[in-house]
Design a protein around this nucleic acid. Structure first.
Lengths: 156, 156
DNA sequence: CACTAATTGCGAGCTAGTCAAAATAAGTGC
DNA sequence: GCACTTATTTTGACTAGCTCGCAATTAGTG
């Protein structure tokens, strides 16, 4: 079936996904996808800048539209850390989480500890109507090794 | 020690906390705290409206300043659900989480499942510098009972 | 009760994102 | 390969939510 696509040709895989979803395959969409794939956890602004290197005429609004649409389709994942514009990544469907360094802002992916999402079973209080949970977005906040080291040097 | 403060006189407790933190006890701060306490998960706008009932002259900017400062002090907790302005609550320090209904936007508190935060121990990939984690903010996204029921009625 | 630094109010300004309508281009059939 | 249809992109104006600097006010201290 895919004997000639052993190497991950993301672009054609994306094209297929787009078509399957009833969307047209435009250079704008591919440029946005490629930009995010190359630099995960990018803001709409970063993505615009990156994508423009391949597609100089690309407009900011197109990026917003594409991001919104592809996120809805599930081809992108969007997450919004505090005090930051929304970030996007192409890694979807694996329910992975994020760790953000409150000092320098660095963001790392964290695999969902176990194969099955461990946090999908909240503990409801007696007076609450439980919800049917679909996603558990976990945002770890801490300090990364670099900042810890820098802090030690600075005396404190 | 507290034999005369059996009833939770939040206002005086807040005053004490403020003084301890080196802040002055102003009616603006107390009005904001009272508003949030009465209506947890409020936006800055809601808080302004509520607080103005007690303090008609209160300005929006003061609310923002107070919210930012008190959040930094740890007297308020701030969280930013997707597609929503920041929300505030007075319940701090217990590492509880939030569940949001993606349909109607309703938000519920969810106690941290176990006494010890279950999610404070992420699983790091081999090539990653682990961070020193301090908080794990969990945002459950799902559909609440009401919306589920409404959906069933609507045919789908 | 006066003093002084902290707090609040006011206005301008900024960033991230949205909306409507016209211009463009992807996919379709001939 | 060409014309057609309609999704997509662009253009440009606009909004929400929040921040900044400076002047006016006020809480807390002695």
């Amino acid at each position: 079936m895919s004997q000639f696509t052993a190497l991950p040709d993301r672009a054609s895989a994306w094209s297929e996904q787009l078509r399957t979803a009833g969307r047209r395959v435009t250079k704008q969409r591919l440029a946005v996808l490629a930009a995010i794939d190359a630099h995960p956890h990018s803001t709409a602004d970063n993505i615009l800048e990156l994508a423009r290197r391949e597609l100089p005429g690309l407009s900011a609004q197109s990026v917003y539209v594409v991001l919104g649409d592809l996120t809805e389709l599930g081809m992108l994942r969007r997450f919004e850390p505090p005090h930051s514009p929304a970030l996007y990544e192409t890694r979807t469907g694996d329910n992975h989480h994020h760790a953000i360094c409150t000092r320098c802002g660095r963001i790392e992916d964290v695999d969902c500890a176990v194969g099955h999402a461990p946090c999908l079973h909240p503990h409801w209080n007696d007076d609450q109507q439980p919800m049917s949970i679909q996603i558990a977005d976990v945002l770890y906040q801490g300090i990364c090794q670099d900042c810890l080291a820098a802090e030690r040097q600075d005396g404190d």
